[in-house]
């Protein structure tokens, strides 16, 4: 079985994001970029499945400008076998991503697609569910545990009240949550080896998908700032402030 892992290139999660002065977006120039953290978890899970004999090939795919090839190289350095880069503008919506991925699935015929539950830039949380819908496949979302059992998979989902266990039919789309695993770091030799692994590049147009944005982002602004508070000297003062000043207890 082949496993497909879409990996998104996003601003590194350590970076303090700044809104552009003209309110058209956030500052991307000279900002450190990295693989979306959930996608590292997705790559890791695919590799573990392969190492356990449950998969024979792990293919990483990223959609975006040419720099996205770096993100694919990161996945290859972690251990993925092959990469596919789909050239597109930087801002691309989940629906268009899902449509492109559907075409990749048609060509590659994977048994599983591991997707991050959420990209930490757009915070959309849509792509995996959309891909499953377009394919007519089962979806296991917010997954913190998975066990493949032939033509189905037992998944554990992180839900609002705790955990939920589902049995989903394969092939399936699984969106991964934080507790699924602890992703590995790529070692230096593996980073060197990754440079020689195959990486194909195609354009979104080659896949026959219309990626014109459907939504128009008319303005991006800073959230309202909180007023600076005070330090209290002890618990007694804290309780007094909460009771008599803030009146919240």
């Amino acid at each position: 079985m082949k496993v497909l892992v879409p990996v998104k290139r996003v601003i590194d999660y350590h970076v303090k994001v700044r809104v552009k002065a003209d309110n058209t977006g956030v500052e991307l120039a000279n900002v450190k970029m990295a693989m979306n953290p959930f996608d590292e978890i997705a790559v890791e899970e695919a590799l573990r499945l392969k190492e356990a004999g449950g998969a024979d090939e792990v293919v990483a795919v990223s959609i975006g400008p040419s720099q996205n090839q770096e993100t694919i190289r990161t996945a290859l350095a972690m251990g993925a076998d092959r990469g596919i880069h789909i050239e597109s503008p930087h801002e691309i919506e989940p629906l268009a991503v899902a449509k492109l991925l559907k075409e990749v699935v048609a060509r590659e015929e994977p048994g599983l697609v591991f997707v991050g539950k959420q990209a930490i830039d757009d915070d959309c949380n849509q792509t995996g569910q959309m891909l499953a819908a377009l394919l007519g496949w089962a979806q296991g979302t917010f997954v913190s545990g998975i066990e493949i059992k032939g033509d189905s998979a037992a998944v554990i989902r992180e839900v609002d009240g705790g955990l939920e266990h589902l049995e989903i039919r394969m092939p399936a789309v699984v969106t991964v949550d934080l507790r699924l695993n602890e992703p590995r770091y790529a070692s230096l030799p593996n980073i060197m080896k990754a440079k020689k692994k195959p990486l194909d590049s195609i354009s979104a147009a080659d896949l026959g998908v219309d990626i014109t944005p459907r939504l128009n982002i008319t303005r991006v602004e800073e959230p309202p700032a909180r007023e600076a508070g005070i330090k209290v000297s002890d618990v007694a003062e804290l309780v007094d402030k909460l009771k008599n000043e803030a009146k919240v207890i």
Partner: peptide, 8 residues
């Protein structure tokens, strides 16, 4: 977006 660091 961006963990609430920007509002679109």
């Amino acid at each position: 977006i961006y963990a609430g660091n920007a509002i679109a």
